[in-house]
């Protein structure tokens, strides 16, 4: 790890100012991702601004019925919050499927949004990697890419976004609240993360010095059901090979509308909007297959991850089946 200095911030404006003031400075929240990357020399911030003292750790109901999650709410507190367990089970399940209890006790909502890929080449600075060192090349495309993305990749990068929480939030149509040198703004969840394109090092629309303050969840209709399903190489403490977050509005046993997001397969939390348009009518195997095929349309297999296309379809079909309750 390179030497760095650390500053304590007690309110948002000072934190934002501190990060804006010094090039190469970063916020630190739970530190579960950032510190690991610093140890591996992937991140080399000269200054860390500790935001844990900020008053951003509340979960509040919003007047229109939604929920505001402070950026510093720990993943475990969020997962076990009664409001989330009851109204947004997909989010609770997604959080609890991630990492380990110890990590979830530290990891924050804001940090989870910004956690970086687990592409093994990204973590080892002796390998070329466009995301880490723009222009150096992508080791995964010609190398070992079993864990990499099949959706949203480019010739420059095929790294997955590893978060489970984000997949659920994408399906919930969340929005992200940001405070920066120029004031506050809200960003729809699906616009927050960027596709790699030619600039895989740019992962979100955040501008330098901008602080995530909260994530807002819109209200769900009372008949909404949701579920998160994650498939992985071991039963716990492992990132997804494929995962699916499903939110369904049901009426009289019929699907009125639904939202789908996939994890483990996309270069960003993958909202399958096209497939959602087909998601209507009586639950049937046929319907699910059609929807799943649409969700994986355009998927591109690499040497070692072709199985993810079929696995993601099956994961989605299973998640739809569980959410709708019965059939298939």
């Amino acid at each position: 790890m390179e030497p760095f200095s650390i500053q304590q911030a007690t309110d948002a404006p000072t934190a934002i100012k501190a990060v804006g003031a010094a090039a190469g400075s970063k916020f630190i929240a739970g530190g579960t991702n950032l510190v690991d990357l610093m140890k591996m020399y992937v991140e080399r911030p000269a200054v860390l601004v500790n935001i844990n003292g900020l008053n951003l750790n509340k979960i509040e109901t919003l007047t229109h019925g939604g929920v505001r999650i402070g950026a510093l709410v720990r993943n475990s507190d969020l997962a076990y919050h009664p409001l989330i367990e009851k109204r947004y089970p997909v989010l609770s399940q997604a959080l609890l499927s991630g990492a380990s209890p110890q990590l979830r006790n530290m990891a924050t909502t804001g940090g989870n949004l910004l956690q970086r890929t687990r592409c093994p080449y990204f973590f080892d600075i002796s390998f070329p990697c466009n995301k880490r060192t723009p222009g150096s090349g992508c080791s995964a495309i010609k190398g070992y890419n079993r864990s990499n993305a099949i959706l949203g990749g480019s010739d420059h990068c095929i790294a997955t976004h590893p978060s489970d929480m984000c997949v659920a939030m994408a399906a919930l149509d969340a929005s992200i609240r940001i405070e920066g040198p120029d004031g506050e703004r809200d960003i729809p969840f699906t616009d927050f993360h960027l596709l790699p394109g030619e600039t895989p090092e740019k992962e979100t629309v955040l501008k330098p010095g901008e602080l995530i303050t909260a994530v807002d969840l819109p209200p769900l209709s009372h008949s909404a059901r949701s579920h998160y399903l994650k498939v992985r190489d071991r039963a716990s403490y492992e990132f997804a090979l494929a995962s699916a977050a499903v939110v369904l509005n049901m009426d009289n046993g019929e699907i009125k509308s639904g939202r789908i997001a996939l994890g483990g397969v996309g270069t960003k939390p993958w909202r399958a909007t096209k497939a959602e348009q087909l998601l209507q009518g009586r639950p049937s195997e046929e319907l699910y297959h059609t929807v799943a095929a649409a969700a994986l349309e355009g998927a591109k297999a690499q040497t070692y991850n072709g199985f993810k296309i079929e696995l993601a379809k099956r994961t989605l079909i299973r998640a739809l089946t569980i959410t709708a309750g019965g059939i298939a």
């Binding site: 093994p120 080892d124 002796s126 390998f127 010609k142 190398g143 070992y144 040497t303």
Partner: peptide, 8 residues
């Protein structure tokens, strides 16, 4: 790594 034999 299938191209250079380094541990991934």
């Amino acid at each position: 790594d299938p191209t250079n034999g380094r541990v991934v």
